[in-house]
Design a protein around this nucleic acid. Structure first.
Length: 464
RNA sequence: UCCGGGGUAGCUCAGUUUGGCAGAGCAGCGGACUGUUAAUCCGUUUGUCGUGGGUUCGAGUCCCACCCCCGGAGCCA
């Protein structure tokens, strides 16, 4: 008989039918009435399926009574209306076929919940917990919804390179990629490592962003998006940063900052609506156990218009705020985390898109505004997380871009191909980057980013 | 990297103030009971007190160094 996923079995009402399921035991409760209750979970949904294993089963003593938490088993049985509260249906087992048992004395998971800190040390087993299972399903839904959103709007999915020679931000530590012998690398006459002899005949790194590559394709195919892993070798020890994370970067030709903000707002709302509709069971779980206001907050975001203010206006709001900030507020200084959170959580109380930041602390590729002071940048701020999106209209004017690079102290020769895009058929274009893990955090209420990534990489942590 | 809090049984944590036999709950195991569902009740096993030095008759507790984890900050997505 063909095996069915538990989430589909739970929807059936044809009592008396024979079904086959397989999964991992969450709990087993024995009744001295001569039978056992087994709660089975296969990850297809949060809810487990209750199996009634009668003492008459030929392998009841030998197998069923050994099925402790964590054991893998296949069960064929009759779909039955449950006489007890707690579940609508259950399976009265005809055949119980164990695969791998789990020794309850050494199995690290318990019926009772354990701390997320501990689960990180058993990252290979934590997907068997309710929370990590639900996170994984929401993460999957957000990924699928991302493709649907952009595909429906005629964006092409672009695979940007992961190994690169360019540093898109001009800031941030990068992971070096090399095949040179670390013990005795070839050296030039000045004693420095001679990367001309390395695999790529140049220093190479793991990408921090696919944006520059995406710009090239947008200036040929109109609209593209990347969705792939990115890397930062920063020694960041926070609940919002990873050394390896997944980023989505749309890039549109013939678009300005307003178009960019429109797209960002539509995208974030689309993601929220998608999981509200398709991951109801999981979100209710998070709302109950992780973050009590989650569903109200997400519904509010899905229905609200994002507030749009300029950096200059934001500074004005912060200066007038009846709030004592740790960092001073002054035009020309970047917004601190506390400032961002005040804007979205206290002052405006919904997502905020801040635009037109000072040129001084923004990246070289952002389009300079006519005021000479600011650039066409935007940050999307949401409650709880803070900055969830960073983007800009790109500088399409060759002379202005070259000038910005000189001011930022960058090597124009190294970016010859990027400047070529402005030499030949340049056009206004804009795009942004969104960290997938930040959205998973936002939509699940999970506090630590390490719990929304399958095998998170952070400083000192890449064991699994 | 900076600031703060931590590291004691498989897990969650008391015990450190004032140095003197290593503790509780949960889990596991044994039993009782039960259409149960974080089951309940009785009994019970389990220790490199993060690591390395030092002080002391005696250190989980005091001193020094280091490692790791968590929270906040910075960097950012």
């Amino acid at each position: 008989m063909e095996r069915q996923l538990i989430k589909h079995v739970l929807e059936r009402e044809d009592y008396g039918a024979e079904v086959t399921v397989a999964g991992w035991v969450r709990t087993r409760r024995d009744s001295k009435g001569g039978f056992s209750f087994i709660e089975l979970n296969d990850g297809s949904t949060l809810t487990g399926l209750q199996i009634i294993a009668d003492g008459d089963l030929p392998n009841y003593e030998a197998d069923v009574l050994r099925l402790a938490i964590g054991s893998a088993v296949r069960v064929t049985g009759v779909l039955t209306e449950s006489p007890a509260k707690g579940q609508r249906i259950e399976i009265k087992a005809i055949e119980v076929e164990p695969f791998g048992f789990a020794d309850p004395e050494s199995y690290p998971l318990q019926k009772k919940s354990v701390s997320f800190e501990h689960l990180r040390e058993i990252a290979h087993l934590r997907p068997r917990t309710n929370t990590i299972g639900a996170v994984t399903r929401v993460r999957n839904a957000l990924s699928y919804a991302t493709h649907r959103f952009y595909q429906d709007r005629d964006f092409l999915y672009l695979h940007a390179p992961i190994i690169t020679t360019s540093d898109a931000e001009g800031a941030g530590e990068m992971f070096r990629v090399t095949t040179l012998d670390p013990a005795s690398p070839p050296r030039g006459e000045d004693g420095a490592v001679d990367y001309a002899q390395d695999f790529f005949a140049a220093p190479t790194f793991l990408t921090v962003s696919g944006q520059l590559n995406a710009e090239a394709y947008a200036l040929a195919l109109d609209r593209v998006y990347t969705f792939g892993p990115t890397f930062r070798a920063e020694n960041s020890n926070t609940r919002r940063h990873l050394a390896e994370f997944w980023m989505i970067e749309p890039e549109m030709a013939f678009a300005d900052l307003n178009d960019n903000a429109d797209l960002a707002e539509d995208y974030v709302k689309y993601l929220v609506r998608y999981v509200l509709e398709h991951n109801t069971t999981d979100l209710e779980f998070f709302n109950k156990w992780i973050d009590e206001g989650l569903l109200d907050m997400l519904t509010g975001v899905a229905e609200s218009d994002f507030e749009r203010i300029t950096y200059t206006q934001a500074i004005d709001v912060l200066e007038k705020a009846d709030e004592s900030f740790e960092f001073p507020v002054a035009w020309g200084d970047d917004l601190q985390s506390e400032h961002e959170r005040y804007l979205t959580e206290q002052a405006i109380r919904r997502p905020v898109i801040v635009t037109d930041f000072p040129f001084e602390f923004k990246a070289f590729y952002m389009r300079r505004n006519d005021d000479g002071q600011t650039v066409a940048a935007m940050d999307v701020l949401v409650p709880q997380i803070g900055e969830i999106i960073g983007g800009s209209q790109r500088e399409e004017r060759l002379d202005v871009l070259a000038n910005s690079m000189r001011i930022k102290g960058m090597d124009e020769d190294h970016y010859w191909w990027y400047l070529d895009l402005r030499r030949f058929g340049s056009a206004p274009h804009a795009g942004f980057g969104l960290g997938l893990e930040r959205v998973v955090q936002f939509t699940t209420g999970m506090q630590n980013i390490r719990d929304v990534m399958p095998f998170p990489r952070s400083p000192r942590n890449a064991e699994f």
